[in-house]
Design a protein around this nucleic acid. Structure first.
Length: 237
DNA sequence: TCATTAAATTGTT
DNA sequence: AACAATTTAATGA
């Protein structure tokens, strides 16, 4: 796997791309321009890594368009924990705050446009902007809940439930505001994410559609009942 | 704008 | 894993 070279391949984002950054509009004009001065975007091709475990954390990353996969290596060397990173998501603040190297790998599931803010600017904003602090704090808090849910998902062995829970995580409205009611993800990509074959994902999606939780669309799907997905397969339902 | 072709994605075995 | 059917994207008149 090749690590992406942000320094060389990056460019300045366009206006429409900037619109996909959820925290920018909450900042004061001065801080917006501070962020925009250093904001860069780069296109990651399938299989390319945005960041790698052990590398020094130099950027705060966000997804403009596309889909990334976050995988956390085990000590044994077997990659275990997977999480999807859809448009509107920003990540890395935890490691940036602690000044540690990255503790997970991020790789592109499909061609993805990634934005990056240098670590110095991230810290400047953290010191100077209250709205920025709110965003980061909220982000950390919400993600804590995500990880707890992820532990439970890993224990589930029923494929239909796994797919349902993973989908509900991807549609998280606070962490991933860029995801509307339609998520652009192919069944193949969902398979890589959940750890199932494409065929099995296809079966699971049809079950979920039959229960009116989602609607399958070409190259993606639409969520009809997010709450229903979230507790699918649990004793309550 | 429309018709044709290629590529991507899905449904099925 | 392989194949056919379907949808989208690209191309050119």
């Amino acid at each position: 796997m090749s690590l992406i070279a942000l320094r060389e391949r990056s460019r300045v984002p366009t206006a429409t791309e900037i619109d996909q950054i959820p925290w920018l509009s909450q900042l004061s004009a001065a801080h917006q321009s501070l962020a925009l001065r250093s904001l860069r975007v780069v296109q990651a091709d399938v299989g390319e890594q945005v960041c790698r475990i052990g590398r020094p954390a130099s950027y705060w990353f966000g997804v403009i368009d596309g889909l990334l996969k976050m995988s956390s290596d085990n000590i044994m060397g077997t990659p275990i924990t997977f999480t999807g990173v859809p448009p509107g998501a920003w990540f890395g603040e935890g490691t940036l705050l602690k000044g540690e190297p990255y503790r997970y790998n991020i790789e592109a599931l499909r061609r993805t446009l990634v934005a990056g803010v240098p670590v110095e600017v991230f810290h400047d904003l953290l010191e100077q902007s209250l709205p920025f602090n709110r965003f980061v704090l909220n982000q950390l808090n919400e993600r804590l809940g995500q990880f707890i849910a992820a532990r439970e998902i890993d224990r589930i062995n029923d494929p239909d439930s796994r797919v349902a829970r993973n989908l509900s995580a991807l549609f998280h409205p606070v962490l991933y505001p860029g995801v509307g009611e339609v998520l652009r993800i192919t069944q193949q990509e969902l398979g890589y994410l959940v750890g199932l074959s494409r065929q099995r994902v296809n079966e699971a999606l049809k079950v979920l559609q039959a229960r009116a939780l989602i609607r399958i669309e070409y190259g993606g799907l639409r969520v009809l009942d997010l709450a229903g997905l979230r507790c699918y397969g649990s004793p309550g339902s």
